[in-house]
Simulated assay, not measured.
Amino acid sequence: MKRPGPLLTLLAGLVLGLFLLTLDATTGAKTASSSYEETSPGPAPARSTAPAASAPAPSPSRVPATDADYAGRTDDDAASIAVTVRDGKAIAYYCDGRAEESWLKGDVEDDGALRLTGEHGATLDGTLRDGKRVDGTVTVGGGRHAFSADRAKKPSGLWRATATVRSAKIDGGWIVLKDGTQVGVLTRDGKPSPAPRIDPETGAVTVDGQQLTARPATP
């Protein structure tokens, strides 16, 4: 039996070398591809185009009502009305100058709203308008009246006197309007009658021969 010749041995070595070269090339290509895939950056995160939510605007601060006096008439000219505001509280006086009257009181809201109450179901619902006037409605004795009262300057405004004269309890209320007109009711032991005039500069008034002093009414 003859041994393989040198030519056959050379051919076998050449085939083995080609096989190893092909295997190395294939492995390198895969390694490079894998390395690229691992190091390739991913897509950038999408940026939101929606506008940022803005903080809610702060509500305007409310300013307490300014201390002031107001005096005016009901729209039907049936009576006069005066309102005095002090330290967030209010007192009002409704008076027809003959026999019907009512004192009302209550708080002033920060937005200028008034809700005042008096005896026998009397009520006043009003609004202060920039410290210049107050308007609304007043209900007294079953009658409902719209009114408007402008800011008053002394001696205009609301006056009151209480005393005991000849064993009778006296309670008088006066509204002095800006034209000097006075509207008031004086009660003696609960019986009403038209009030005598007061001196608007001093508040002096004579009741049944006795001199009293009316003073600006406050809540």
Score class of each variant (00 low, 15 high):
19 F>G: 15
196 P>Q: 00
198 I>K: 02
136 G>E: 08
80 S>D: 13
76 D>V: 12
44 A>Q: 08
215 R>W: 10
44 A>S: 10
173 G>H: 02
77 D>N: 13
106 G>L: 09
98 R>C: 01
161 A>W: 03
61 S>H: 07
203 G>I: 09
188 R>H: 02
138 V>Q: 10
82 A>T: 13
154 K>M: 10
174 W>V: 03
66 T>G: 05
190 G>W: 00
22 T>E: 14
141 G>H: 01
217 A>T: 14
168 A>D: 09
139 T>K: 14
169 K>R: 14
218 T>P: 05
119 E>N: 07
160 R>I: 07
199 D>Q: 05
24 D>K: 13
11 L>E: 09
106 G>F: 07
152 A>V: 11
170 I>F: 01
213 T>P: 13
205 V>I: 11
19 F>K: 09
191 K>G: 00
199 D>G: 05
217 A>Y: 06
15 V>I: 12
142 G>V: 05
97 G>P: 01
57 A>M: 05
113 A>E: 10
13 G>H: 04
53 A>W: 01
161 A>K: 06
218 T>Q: 14
189 D>H: 01
59 S>K: 08
11 L>H: 02
193 S>P: 01
158 L>W: 08
124 L>V: 11
159 W>K: 08
147 F>H: 07
16 L>F: 11
20 L>H: 10
102 S>R: 10
10 L>S: 09
146 A>R: 15
64 P>L: 08
100 E>D: 13
35 S>T: 15
217 A>L: 15
55 A>L: 02
1 M>P: 11
186 L>H: 00
172 G>D: 04
75 D>V: 12
33 S>V: 03
142 G>P: 02
160 R>Q: 12
74 T>N: 04
178 K>P: 00
85 V>G: 11
122 A>H: 03
103 W>T: 15
195 A>L: 04
83 V>D: 01
204 A>L: 05
164 T>F: 00
148 S>A: 11
91 I>L: 14
179 D>I: 09
207 V>I: 15
13 G>E: 09
174 W>Q: 04
149 A>S: 13
111 D>E: 05
50 A>V: 13
99 A>E: 06
151 R>L: 10
112 G>D: 12
61 S>Q: 12
1 M>V: 13
194 P>V: 03
21 L>M: 12
31 T>A: 14
3 R>S: 10
19 F>M: 14
211 Q>C: 06
103 W>G: 08
114 L>Y: 07
64 P>D: 06
40 S>T: 15
198 I>D: 02
11 L>F: 07
62 R>S: 13
54 S>K: 13
96 D>R: 07
52 A>I: 12
85 V>S: 08
107 D>R: 11
80 S>P: 01
137 T>E: 14
213 T>Y: 07
96 D>E: 04
100 E>Y: 05
192 P>Q: 03
211 Q>Y: 03
82 A>I: 11
31 T>W: 02
67 D>F: 06
38 E>I: 08
159 W>V: 12
197 R>E: 09
152 A>P: 07
68 A>P: 09
218 T>N: 12
209 G>V: 02
112 G>V: 15
141 G>C: 01
216 P>S: 13
63 V>H: 04
168 A>C: 05
97 G>D: 01
161 A>T: 10
100 E>Q: 15
75 D>F: 04
